[in-house]
């Protein structure tokens, strides 16, 4: 399987209370469990990222439940407004229990 690599686009600086857009992308096949192996004819078991959570200074800022109808390499975009500087942590949870994460610092002035 291809390497699972999370990527996020987060502004380094923001004004307090200003809306900022966060874009996230993670490379993942999001195997739906509906596809058949073309050689064996057997169903390929489901293996998807089923949960995405963004926390800011330990507090949940945004989350999403994902089902197999989310496209491969899930892209998620949302907006936040922040009042203080801190760290945004992004976590993606796989069906097999693995958690992929990345952190970004944001300076709020």
């Amino acid at each position: 399987m291809a390497n699972i690599k999370p990527r996020v686009k987060v502004p380094k600086k923001a004004k307090a209370g200003e809306a900022i857009v966060i874009k996230t992308l993670i490379s993942h096949p999001m195997e739906s469990g509906q596809r058949k192996d073309s050689k064996t004819g057997k169903l390929i078991p489901r293996k998807i990222i089923n949960k995405f959570v963004a926390t800011y200074n330990g507090k949940e800022a945004f989350s999403m439940d994902l089902l197999p109808a989310i496209a491969a390499n899930p892209y998620i975009e949302f907006s936040v407004k922040l009042s203080e500087s801190g760290t945004m942590r992004f976590e993606w949870t796989d069906d097999d229990g693995s958690v992929y994460d990345i952190e970004n610092k944001i300076t709020v002035a």
């Binding site: 809306a19 900022i20 739906s32 800011y56 507090k59 949940e60 800022a61 945004f62 999403m64 197999p68 109808a69 989310i70 496209a71 899930p74 892209y75 998620i76 975009e77 949302f78 907006s79 936040v80 407004k81 922040l82």
Partner: peptide
């Protein structure tokens, strides 16, 4: 913390 209740993704 959400600036507004808006989000985007890509679906099948």
């Amino acid at each position: 913390m959400s600036a507004e209740s808006r989000a985007s993704t890509r679906i099948r």
